[in-house]
Amino acid sequence: MIEFHDVNKWYGKYHALVNINAKVARGEVVVVCGPSGSGKSTLIRTLNRLEPIQSGRIRVNGQDIHDKDLDVNAFRSSIGFVFQQFNLFPHLSVLENCTLAPMHLRGLSAKQAREQAMALLERVGLAFKADAMPDALSGGQQQRVAIARALAMEPPLMLFDEPTSALDPEMVGEVLLVMRDLARDGMTMVCVSHEMGFAHEVADRVFFMDAGSILEIATPDDFFNRPQHPRAQQFLSDIRTPFARAI
C-alpha cells in the first residue's frame, strides 16, 4: 500500500532522510522507532505531504503522491493523521471536531455527520463527551477524540506520530487500546511510537531508524529479542536499562 523508493530529504544542509526504501502492505501495522532526531516523524509526515521530499518517490495505493495531477486535499483526506499534541480544534466541541471535515469535504448533511461522529465517539468510548469542549478533556480523552476525528474521513490508512508521548503514563493505555482495536479491525497503520508493549502485541513489523536511515526492518519478536544492527542493540539496551551506560 505504501512504497518508499530512494527517498531523500534535506533541511538546508541537514540530511534528514537518507535513501529510504521500504514497503507497507495493506492491513499491516508498522511501528517506527528509534532515538529522537532520527527522522521517524519526518518519515511519516512525508507520507501525507506535510513535509516535501527532495528526491525519490513515494507511492500510496500505487499512486505517486508527488504527481502533478494529484488532488492533494482529496489525497490527504484518505489518510488519517494523529499528532503527538492532539491538535483538536479548541473553538469547536468534541462533536464539531468530528463533523467539520466530513460535512465540508464529504458533503454529509449535519444529521448524517452527527450520526457518524457519534458512532465513532462511541467506538473510542467518548460519546458522553460529545458536547464538551476539548479543553475540558484529559490528554488521553483528547487523543481519542483526535483518532475519532481522523476516522471520520473513513481513511483506509492511519498514521500516528508519537500519539502517547505527550500523555501522562496512566492515560497511555486508553489510547493504545483504541489503536489496538483499530489494528484488529484490519486498518493499515504506521505508528511512530516508543511503546514497546504495543509494538510487541500489535505490530506486524518494526522499522528501526537512526540518523535519517532505516537500519533494521524486523518482526517485533526478532527486533526485541534478536536485534541485528549494533545501533538497534544499543538503543534497546538504553531504553531497558537507562542507568546502565556511563555518561
Binding site: S78, F83, Q85
Partner: peptide
Amino acid sequence: PKGQMESARSLGLGYFPAMRL
C-alpha cells in the same frame, strides 16, 4: 500553534477553508 493548520490540512481541507474554519 502550527499544529492547528497542520491538522486541518491533514484532514484534507484546503488552505483557505482551513483558514476560514
